[in-house]
Design a binder for these strands. Structure first.
Lengths: 343, 343
DNA sequence: ACAAACAAGTTACTCGAGTAACTAAAGAGG
DNA sequence: CCTCTTTAGTTACTCGAGTAACTTGTTTGT
């Protein structure tokens, strides 16, 4: 019932408690004979040193937190998986804090538990800054993502180059002959979404394509980026009467909704209209037609976030990293010549 | 940089450390004046009591573990979400142990960290029993799932009534006029899969339907239950030449593959063949046609698992619970009369 | 032969809380 | 007025490890 302690082992092996500690931590000055004896007793009792007691002395818990909005969003599951796997390799446990979007809720608990580091997957500028400061004051290392103004002296930052990604998309479509490329925007005032929009605008200019707001459809309240909202937004695009041959959406779910909406309007994908999403969720390659999309490396994102935290914990220096997404060409995009532009 | 301690608060407030503790734990015998004074100092210093130190004394960490194979499987994300949210309400943190399928890998770490409880989402009979015993010996409470022989005196058990669920499916199809109902089985030797197969067999008998192995397609190595394997298995069914009007699959992804396979063979769903899946993953209602499936309450599963652990931790008694799934009727099933049976 | 260096352990203090057992002062009851 | 009880707070020990400083015995060097 009750766990054995270092004292139990020491008594049974006929040594002092310090010797048991020294054996466990591979310290010098222990004869092979006693080492074997102690190890045998440890095995015999199935003794596991208490990480709780150890943490109290060493001031490190080897626990990390990952904070996210919605674990059921397949994008985040991948990130968590990568983060946890990598953390485990180095002996860290990962606490998942999901479902309560804001850091504020978890902040006290995180500090109280003396977690070594926190990965905040999506920062909300308005709210989170103060709480991040509290974490830092408590000596907790922080990695953030989706944030444009970061004090890199204090915090590590891990970003995705949506700007570049958007250029890849436009370049791909341009190569297929598309000249009228629409973009359905996501939830406004989110850093990552703004980057995508900027990228879209700049990429059009770089390809000498006239940029007009008529091809840019904004999200409306209630701001959602679901299949349904994609379906509704493409209807607005069609009603606008503007001619277009390709549509980019702010994420894959919306792209799927767009495909549905186009089908309902009697248009084929990709024969009449090409569609590109962002994220490359699993669903993307299973959809019909399978989705051309920007592959955001979810697991690598998690892995990298851990490494940033780890070097911060061990060496004390923060870091910055930008991941480059890459385009995955599938069946939802095709040559603009093949079909006709919208009447 | 360094966290404040109880001693800091005590000094600044001009009281003893015990008084600080008493204020924090709402004990009696504290005048309103000192309570206010202490609370003010706590606020002033932003003092957060160390859960690590507290755990050492109280022998409870308020940490739980959830062990699962693949977080990227949408089914598990839901379970984790429910588990974590509920645990949080009671002040527990949840460590996710994913990616390394067997308990063995995590066992030492879990014991060492003196976690209060563990939820093992899928037990592997051959391997896990010994490790569960180790957890119990270390005083850690355990909830398992997907397990048919459980010593309920020691372990809590949380099951899903696939047997009943399969009856609901068959009953639904029977009501639509289907008499030749095929079943594509999942990975053999998994408890939950066996239950589904048993349920299928018994449900057919209960409806006076002849049960013949010709309508039962077994999974082949490499045992997978993906969209692709569903697609391949339905081809084998078609090649068998047997007549059928409905297909049940062991999970939703396979059902989607089946629909694809049927389309490729020139058959319509549900006009020619009805298809039913199991799990009700998010994808199910987004598919075309949307999938009639057995809704397994993922979040509730997580919530219930927490409650079993919680009462075990607080009251010391284990529990058993069986969740009843319910059928969700969507577009992939229809009347058998409408279309014709397979030629 | 004798001090210095080293090997193998041990003692004792520390981390930051909870809490039983104690003390001191104020109030109640006769 | 004196005891008894209650209130308010303190002292001192505990949880289970890490580790600096110390001890003791054995080599090594000259």
């Amino acid at each position: 019932m009750k766990n054995h302690t270092r004292t139990d082992v020491a008594k049974l092996a006929g040594v002092s408690t310090a010797t048991v500690s020294n054996v466990l931590n591979n310290k010098k000055n222990i004869s092979d004979a006693t080492r074997q004896r102690v190890l045998a007793v440890i095995q015999q009792l199935d003794y596991q040193p208490s990480m709780v007691a150890r943490s109290l002395v060493t001031q490190e818990t080897r626990q990390l937190c990952i904070i996210l909005n919605d674990l059921e969003n397949p994008y985040y599951s991948g990130v968590v998986q990568g983060f946890e796997n990598e953390a485990w390799q180095e002996g860290y446990f990962v606490n998942v804090c999901s479902g309560y979007s804001d850091l504020a809720t978890y902040c006290d608990s995180i500090i109280s538990r003396r977690v070594d580091g926190v990965f905040i997957t999506t920062v909300r500028h308005d709210n989170d800054d103060d709480h991040i400061q509290r974490l830092l004051k408590a000596g907790i290392k922080v990695v953030v993502s989706g944030c444009d103004e970061v004090d890199l002296k204090q915090i590590s930052d891990l970003e995705i180059d949506y700007y570049d990604g958007m250029h890849q998309i436009v370049h791909h479509l341009y190569g297929l002959g598309h000249r009228e490329i629409s973009y359905l925007n996501g939830v406004p005032k989110t850093t990552t979404v703004d980057q995508r929009l900027d990228g879209y605008r700049q990429a059009l200019l770089d390809h000498n394509l006239t940029y007009g707001d008529a091809l840019l459809i904004f999200n409306r309240p209630p701001f959602e980026t679901t299949l349904l909202s994609g379906q509704q937004m493409v209807q607005r695009l069609l009603q606008s009467g503007r001619s277009f041959s390709a549509i980019i959406t702010t994420n894959d779910l919306m792209a799927m909704g767009v495909i549905r909406g186009l089908h309902q309007a009697g248009l084929r994908v990709p024969e009449d209209v090409s569609v590109v999403g962002i994220d490359n969720i699993r669903l993307a390659e299973l959809w019909e037609p399978s989705l051309t999309t920007l592959s955001v490396p979810q697991r690598i994102m998690g892995v990298k976030a851990f490494h940033l935290l780890y070097t911060n914990i061990k060496m004390g220096n923060t870091g910055y990293f930008k991941l480059r997404p890459h385009l995955i060409e599938r069946q939802s995009t095709g040559s603009a010549n093949r079909g006709h532009l919208r009447s």
